[in-house]
Design a binder for these strands. Sequence first.
DNA 1: GCACGCAAACTTGTCGACAAGTCGACCTGT
DNA 2: ACAGGTCGACTTGTCGACAAGTTTGCGTGC
Lengths: 224, 224
Amino acid sequence: MRQYPAAWLKGQSRGEAIAGELRLRIVDGTLKQGDVISENKIAADFGTSRSPVREALKALSNEGLIRLERMGAVVLGLSAKDIAELYDVRYLIESFAQQRLASSCPPEVISTLRHRIDSMRVAAKYADIAEFAWLDFQFHDGLVAAAGHARIARLWDSVRHVVLAVMLLTTEEVFGGGPDRLERVVAKHETIADAIQSGDEARIAEVVRDYFADSRRTLRSTWS
Amino acid sequence: MRQYPAAWLKGQSRGEAIAGELRLRIVDGTLKQGDVISENKIAADFGTSRSPVREALKALSNEGLIRLERMGAVVLGLSAKDIAELYDVRYLIESFAQQRLASSCPPEVISTLRHRIDSMRVAAKYADIAEFAWLDFQFHDGLVAAAGHARIARLWDSVRHVVLAVMLLTTEEVFGGGPDRLERVVAKHETIADAIQSGDEARIAEVVRDYFADSRRTLRSTWS
DNA sequence: GCACGCAAACTTGTCGACAAGTCGACCTGT
DNA sequence: ACAGGTCGACTTGTCGACAAGTTTGCGTGC
């Protein structure tokens, strides 16, 4: 069974843990679109009361993974179109965040980004899939956080779990593409760091556009 | 006490009702920044158990109005900066949605928009503040929904309650500006409808930019 | 065979209670 | 007077139970 990176599970309440588990099951297809799940059933499965389950379902509903109905919650799943839409949102958020970073980016932010890139190379070398995905995620997470825009950060919060789950799955696929493929992913992140460091708004805009255009392309060929 | 439009309160659970009430109290300043509120206290105030209150606080936390901590939730409030950031997000979402509408906008959507604009004029004439704000909100709500982008719609969902609450308050202020001020607001919406109907992407982009630039300007002069 | 109605088995929303943990005040020893 | 420890009041997280409503399916009448 796939798992979240250890760092992600620290200090979680039961509700968050259940949400994480269900999220992964939905994203990887164990729970298929159209399945209906009830609080009682899930509670029994996890051996808890309905309270944490309730919290988890609410969260998943906010993330658009399920739809709460009168009787039971129906799984929406993640179609190829949904993934594409997710990338639309990521592009919107990150292009905004990076544009903000263009004018004023503290040097320690750049340093942190480069640190994560180096770590990604190490993770790639030793075939540590989860670590690689986690670093990839942290790179983008840090980017949005550094923009210092509370409202945008909230937007990111509402999709970050889904993004991480998708990253975990796509990273597995990327690792199957060999070292060249991995290096290209790392290099893409380096391009972003370089652009932000340059402070050139136009260049940043172009880099972000290219980044997500490329991500979408590789994704399209692998998800179906 | 200010109230939500009747249409907004239909089929609400107690939790949503409490969230709505608290939201308004936070936005209008009854609950100030830094105040700490506990589930027990709120539950006692509303004469319910903690379950609905818990749900409400979670929602408010997702909206960025409060921050959940170990002991008690602290009210974050809405500073002028927060409002500005909220408009950043609205601009991001609506410009995306309207750009999508440019290529393919069903005629009934335009018709609905114009219907709401006409209703706004009526509400303005008879000084129905709540109705005016409600129509303003529905105009933008319908716009985002019509774009047919599930993920963007979720983003909008995460801010719509706050947006409505802010609209209710600012609309009060706008009504104090006399009929000219009101007509200008209505006209701004007409400009949007016209642009979307034209299907000209560049024109739409300009109109949306102007719309929010103007909104921000009038807001800045009235909020402090 | 088919429509209708009723009942039973689900569902969610809400409630009060308990356990574990946290913060503050007070009390004590130095 | 002040540092340190302890007690108590308060918090959240979780639990099991109940009420209200909805869906399903069976049985009945035609």
